[in-house]
Amino acid sequence: MGTHLSIDEVALSQGELYTIVTNKKYKGKKGSLVAIIAGTKADQVIEHISKIDYQKRQFVKEITLDMANSMKLIAKKCFPKAIQVTDRFHVQKLALEALQEIRIKHRWEAMDMENQAIIKAKSENKTHIPQLLANGDSLKQLLARSRYLLYKSREKWTINQQERAQILFELYPEIKTAYYLAQQLRSIYNTNNDKNVAMLKLAHWYRKVEESGFKNFNIILNTITVNYQSILNYFDNRSTNAAAESFNAKIKAFRSQFRGVRKIDFFLFRLSNIFA
């Protein structure tokens, strides 16, 4: 047991989920694994973690987690003195998913328009020639190929991505607005160390989201409001759940090395010997 823990879920075999608690101090090496419990039901996980001596659990100062209510309940019951920190990457992921939803909506519309144009051309015994944009993409291709550039900041775009983004933003201003909202949220996390300053900037970001009128971004606002305190706790020590995600990746690599998991109990025994 350490003072700074992470809690997350991992799929070991056939999509079966396990709750895993790791000690950040050991950075994925021997001593990292505190507990691994079958399932994600809060009651079951609490029952098993509670078997660890209460004095040791009381020693925990901080625990990073995602926004799942079950994880918050487990952390509250099992580590009562620990400050809960919502992982920043889960918050940013919500904003990026909302942005991609807007892009996908326009892509479906572009596909429908192209299909209708092809049907019309066939009915008139003509060959449909798609209209190409300045960079050589059709409208459908532009929206499909813009997926990855929307995940990145402007500074990391290649020359082709810069050209594609310029055309995309001219044709679809709402994608441009949503992209900058997602980037502003990332900037709040990247550039602020003071909780009060971050709180003020989040309030400004809230106002911009409300003005945008995007339904999916407003859902993010409600999610952030529910987890407001634990999200702000990030700015105390800038703690993330990256250690847990990294450990999950190690488990998956270990699993693939043995071509999957045949016997769960023996696999858990191996994990315990190596990482506990």
Rank of each mutant, 00 (worst) to 15 (best):
E211W: 15
N227Y: 11
L133G: 08
N233P: 05
F269R: 15
G15K: 14
Q44T: 12
Y151F: 15
R270S: 07
L65R: 10
R259C: 07
H204T: 07
D87G: 05
N218S: 15
E170M: 03
E97M: 06
Q84K: 08
S138C: 05
M111Y: 10
L96D: 05
M1K: 09
I102Y: 10
L133Q: 12
S239W: 04
E174H: 15
I7G: 01
Y234F: 08
L268G: 03
K126T: 15
A82W: 13
G28M: 05
Y206G: 08
S32M: 05
S187G: 03
N248T: 00
C78F: 12
K195S: 10
L221R: 12
D66M: 00
A110R: 11
T240R: 03
F169G: 03
L221T: 04
E16A: 02
E62G: 04
L150R: 04
E170G: 02
N248R: 01
H128T: 04
E163G: 03
T225M: 14
I37F: 02
Q161L: 10
R154N: 05
H204W: 12
L132F: 08
P130A: 02
T22K: 04
T86N: 09
I219V: 15
A95L: 02
F266W: 14
R270P: 09
R262A: 13
E16N: 06
L232M: 09
M71E: 04
R270C: 11
N192W: 08
A117F: 09
I20R: 00
N248F: 00
M113S: 09
N222Y: 10
A121N: 04
W108Q: 03
W157P: 14
R147N: 11
Q58F: 06
K76P: 12
K76C: 11
Q55N: 11
E97D: 08
I231L: 08
L271W: 01
K27G: 00
K93H: 05
L94N: 09
R103I: 07
S239I: 11
R186V: 10
S246T: 09
E210D: 14
I118G: 02
V91M: 07
Y206C: 09
F254D: 07
L94Q: 15
E109A: 08
R270Y: 01
G39N: 13
A110M: 01
G260D: 11
M71I: 03
Q184S: 15
A38Q: 15
S6G: 13
V21Y: 08
I175S: 03
T240V: 09
F267C: 15
Y189E: 14
S70A: 08
L232S: 09
V45K: 01
N135E: 14
I119T: 11
F267G: 14
F89Q: 06
I220Q: 03
L139D: 13
L33G: 00
I74S: 00
Q92A: 07
L5Q: 01
H204Y: 09
S146M: 03
L271F: 02
E163A: 08
